[in-house]
Amino acid sequence: MAHTAELSTDKPADRSPSRAARLARDFALNKYLYIMMIPVVVYYLVFHYAPMYGALIAFKDYSPMKGIVGSDWVGFRHFADFFNSYYFWRILKNTITISLYSLIFEFPTPIILALLINEVRHKTFKRVAQTITYMPYFISLVVICGIITDFTNADGIINRIFVWMGYDGQAMLQRPELFRSIYILSEIWQRIGWESIIYIAALMGIDQEQYEAARMDGASRFKQMMHITLPGIMPTIAIMMILRMGNLLNVGFEKIILLYNPITYDTADVISSFVYRKGLLEFGWSYSSAVGLFNSVINLILLVTANYVSRRLNDSSLW
């Protein structure tokens, strides 16, 4: 009996499978999913991670004849030159200003459009409204910028309307104080429909029984939107906000370059357009790489910070 009691007090052996065994079993169960994932992994390794090796030229005096390895090492000299240059505060200020304007004015507009479309009961009108708002996104950026330039020229239709209202008639893109407003308004027009798709999809996942219960309790459509619809898509809004914060300083240089000119550099020149000019037009490869690397590090810090804050506030995060 004593021997039996002694045996009963022994702890059972730990027979949980090892991590390798669990991975092997998971691969056996989902092998086709792993096979489908291979092209995506290869794509990111080849086109996203392998090119990061080239960031070394930010710390070297790069010469195409010597190559990345053979070029002279200069450490943080290019970073110091950038931080001490006249352009540093100008382009940093412009980048942050345009990014904040975009975050404040452009980010909420797709959410508002999705909420409005969700409230429309006429299916034909809803389809027409969605199609019209989607269309500008699929137009070439060069064409978009050409339209903006033509409409805001001295004899453009928008400029003529403003002249009729008392404007002096000067081409709008020649006035530095108007560049940011034109850029943000055109961004809203171009992207509002496309970016609303993800919010419309999130709205489809809300339980319709909540609306029925709210209507039975006498809640108006506005109260249903405030207390059911918005909380239902809040996790999606949080994720999109995190992604936007991670690209806060990545103001698209293509549109900036197509719209700006030396007259508007003081308010239009941003980090990405500065990197383009220094790297491709003036052949300052190492200097422009240092500026681009600085921009990427700041974006990474903003992404991690936004993810942490979102996870603490509403339990929604990327990781």
Rank of each mutant, 00 (worst) to 15 (best):
E119Q: 14
S272E: 15
N299D: 03
A21K: 04
P136G: 02
G166N: 02
S16R: 14
I132D: 05
L115P: 05
L23W: 15
Y260Q: 11
V163W: 04
I117T: 07
R221W: 11
M37L: 15
Y44A: 09
T9D: 08
T229I: 04
V142G: 02
Y87I: 15
W164A: 14
T97A: 14
V304S: 00
A55Q: 10
G292N: 11
R311K: 14
A5V: 10
I157S: 13
S286M: 08
N84R: 13
A171E: 03
A21T: 08
Q190S: 05
E177T: 07
N314T: 03
V270R: 09
I237G: 09
A201T: 09
G169Q: 09
R221T: 11
F27Q: 06
Y211R: 03
S140R: 01
Y49F: 14
P39V: 07
P108N: 10
A202T: 08
I91L: 05
F274S: 08
A28I: 02
R77A: 15
V251L: 04
F222S: 11
F47V: 08
Y44E: 01
L92H: 02
S181D: 05
F274G: 04
R90A: 07
D207P: 06
T9G: 12
G67F: 12
N159D: 07
M241V: 05
E195C: 09
I117F: 14
H3E: 14
G279N: 06
W164T: 10
D207Y: 01
I256L: 13
S102P: 02
R19C: 05
I117L: 15
N314A: 03
L313F: 14
G146D: 01
R127K: 14
R15E: 10
N295K: 06
L318G: 09
A154D: 06
L281S: 14
R312M: 11
A238C: 12
I111T: 02
V251C: 03
W73D: 07
K93T: 15
H122C: 00
L318E: 01
T109S: 13
G70E: 06
L303A: 07
A28V: 06
L103V: 09
A2N: 12
A2T: 09
W189N: 00
I301M: 08
V275W: 11
F151D: 11
I301Y: 00
S317E: 06
L29M: 13
K31M: 08
Y183T: 03
R311E: 13
S196C: 11
P262M: 12
T236P: 10
A213D: 02
G70D: 08
W89Y: 09
R22W: 03
I35N: 04
L280M: 15
Y211F: 15
F274N: 05
H227P: 00
K93R: 15
A55Y: 13
T236H: 08
A201V: 10
Y34W: 13
W319H: 00
D315T: 06
V309D: 04
Q210N: 06
L248D: 02
A214F: 04
Y265T: 07
L113I: 10
K11Y: 10
Y44R: 01
Q130G: 04
V297G: 02
L33N: 15
N250W: 13
V297S: 00
I96W: 04
M216F: 06
